[in-house]
Design a protein around this nucleic acid. Structure first.
Lengths: 407, 407
DNA sequence: ATAATTTATTTTCGTCGCGGAATAAATAGG
DNA sequence: CCTATTTATTCCGCGACGAAAATAAATTAT
């Protein structure tokens, strides 16, 4: 339980105002009052401070009410896109994606380096990330000094608090202190997080979770991820460790125990396909997007072996999703990641397994949606994660009293 | 995001003070300052209000510092046990337990009615609970008017917000509005909750979770339950639905899908034993505590069939617990419930399965403890659940300003 | 026995943030 | 040009917090 004082009070209200402006675009002060249930006085004071700090700007006085309304026109307020810039980075075993965004998490520049990271030592990967960040920032015509922070997302077991990647498909080593290492190289705050948390935040800010404050995000990528938004916040335990869906143990058809990730992750599916169909294994693992398209087309064209592999993965994943429904009872589950592009051959068995295994009486609780997202979505999530901290951070002025003195 | 005002501020701080007094027994104001990091001014004001409302009382001025300390002695403050009374109820398929407690959740009177509830219609069960509550309150020499609330815990899928039991082993019907029905009968606020949430809160307040704000509680009873304490609060999704571990789907040895509850719950274990060993099935299901003792003794005396059944249940549960570690990464998992009395024949295979299936790199994250608890613990948890609301409720006075006027 | 010292609690005072009410600003319509 | 209307700001009072001073209630020293 935290102790409350006026400062905290202001911080809370300030954050709700900033978040309201972020979510509801250019918005007038009156409307902020309605949405936040704060008094006009408070909204006026807070927006004045935000304007002072140039975190928000007044936009066109265009009135969205039915034209020809009487009275003083509303001044629409919006986030100042240039208030700060951040960089979002996403690492997968196959590539590095870097995106520079403005204060609204609009992507200004993004680039993708196709590198097989799992073959490289941690030092080399840190070098590559550093280069990527500097390059992307330069492409956006910004000096590094204007970058307020960098957020890096990667799969595996990641301690956000310490910036250490305990284990994951990206690093061959264990306990890599990537956060600290990059903060030193770039001389900028760097946070580390599980990639799926970024996906979850991205869905909450820009995607299928905008209208909800509680949902689950499952990413089907080289590895399987689970992100939880609970009461509007990314769900974390204090240690900063994050759940990993791929680590869940299931019983295989032959009775042996396996990790879910070794059956239903994209890398497992593609490996199965390569083994069954033969084909060029290197080519398949090197270009997952192409392999996914091939697999989808194959299954839909009626190749039974391919369809069977996808169906098996779908069913297995579906059972685990039903278990998540039993445990979390979320109003919505968002499926995303490259794996979604495998199409109905994967998703139909998945949905059926979910239906069959959802506990009685909970059929109407959870809605399942899916969405294919590009690389930018992940990087944008990383940027959002960084911005979230920034919005809450203390800026120049404290309130109206101080401003009155300095003017 | 909630909007903050002075009233909320006070409510928060007031609650932290009450909670500090509850947790750290008779405690002086100075020490409250240290623990809560509130200023002496604030603590003084809040405790004055609490004293005014008779929610707390000064106890012996005994100084626990090394005797012969100089200076003004500390006044120890404690919860006033008689500030209010609540009733906790727990329903299982076999019995109803009712406990009347004071403001400190000390059990004053408790009684257990052995009734096979699953044979009765909802109306009859509500009658029985009403009688039990009235009886227990009368036994404690209290009029019903002094009861501030009743909390009822039961297994199954329970909507706390609406007071409806969607489904569970207690009721043969679905969607029983037990909360509303009892609130009308008793003319007292009644809340409904999943029994395991009560167990979790009880562990947090009085048991193995006192020192932590994040942990999992798994109850092995007729059904399997999962309770989550997250950042000091019972974890709930907005709908008020609660997770049910028994509903998790697993793959059985023969490849078929089963609910975990149909393999590793106490009722499943006892049914397996009855089937395998023969014996008097009715007797075994009617007195679970006796059956558990018999099973434990049998397994430890070397009866291979019995040991095998327990080992299988233990392993299965262990795998699911490893999955919970993968998903929640809690610092501790507390196993409790009647099933713990099955002893090492169940727990050893369980712990081994947990060890074998915990994801790499997370072996040192979660500590597993177990504890046998009596019926009172559950009812006490129910009382605590009710008190939690009461502590936060607004009482007579608002603050020092008002008192100054009225005096 | 009385004064000095020490520690706990309360009181005084200044500040901050909130909300309500009055005021100012900006526009449309007559 | 004046009035009605809607939006935004300012003024004012209140409650809450914290710092510091004052007070209270002991123990120790003289």
């Amino acid at each position: 339980m935290k102790t409350a004082d006026p400062e905290l009070m202001r911080a809370i209200n300030r954050l709700t105002v900033v978040d309201t402006i972020r979510r509801f675009g250019p918005i007038a002060r009156v409307e902020i009052c309605e949405r936040t249930e704060l008094s006009p006085t408070t909204v006026s004071a807070i927006t004045a401070a935000l304007l002072d700090d140039a975190l928000i700007i007044p936009t066109a006085v265009g009135d969205l009410r039915d034209e020809a309304t009487r009275g003083r026109p509303r001044v629409q307020l919006a986030l100042n896109p240039d208030a700060a810039y951040v960089v979002g980075v996403r690492l997968t075993p196959d590539q590095i994606t870097v995106a520079t965004t403005n204060f609204r998490a609009d992507v200004l520049e993004s680039l993708t380096l196709p590198v097989r990271l799992d073959r490289q030592p941690a030092g080399v990967i840190a070098d590559l990330v550093e280069d990527g960040v500097r390059r992307s920032v330069a492409d956006a015509n910004l000096p590094m000094s204007r970058i307020a922070g960098v957020c890096i997302g990667l799969p595996g077991i990641v301690e956000r608090d310490t910036g250490i990647c305990r284990r994951g498909p990206v690093f061959s080593e264990a306990n890599v202190p990537l956060g600290k290492s990059l903060a030193e190289r770039l001389a900028v705050p760097v946070t580390l997080d599980v990639d799926v948390n970024l996906a979850a935040l991205a869905e909450h800010w820009f995607g299928r979770g905008r209208d909800l404050d509680d949902f689950l995000v499952i990413t089907i990528e080289q590895s399987l991820g689970l992100g939880v938004i609970h009461r509007g916040e990314v769900f974390r335990v204090p240690g900063g460790l994050s759940p990993d869906l791929g680590d869940v143990v299931i019983t295989a058809g032959d009775g042996s125990l396996k990790r879910l990730g070794s059956v239903a992750s994209l890398s497992a599916i593609l490996a199965d396909l390569a083994r069954e169909i033969g084909g060029d294994h290197a080519a398949i693992t090197g270009r997952p997007d192409r392999s996914v398209a091939l697999a989808r087309d194959g299954a839909e064209a009626g190749y039974a072996t391919v369809a069977a592999i996808l169906a098996r993965a779908g069913r297995t994943l579906g059972v685990s999703i039903a278990n998540l429904i039993a445990l979390f009872a979320p109003p919505r589950i968002i499926l995303t990641g490259l794996g979604i592009a495998l199409g109905k051959s994967l998703l139909d068995p998945l949905m059926q397994a979910v239906r069959e295994n959802t506990p009685n009486g909970m059929d109407d609780v959870t809605e399942i949606v899916h969405e294919i997202r590009g690389e930018d979505m992940w990087a944008r999530g990383a940027a959002a994660m960084m911005l979230r901290d920034l919005y809450g951070a203390p800026w120049n002025t404290t309130g109206p009293a101080m401003r009155r003195l300095t003017r």
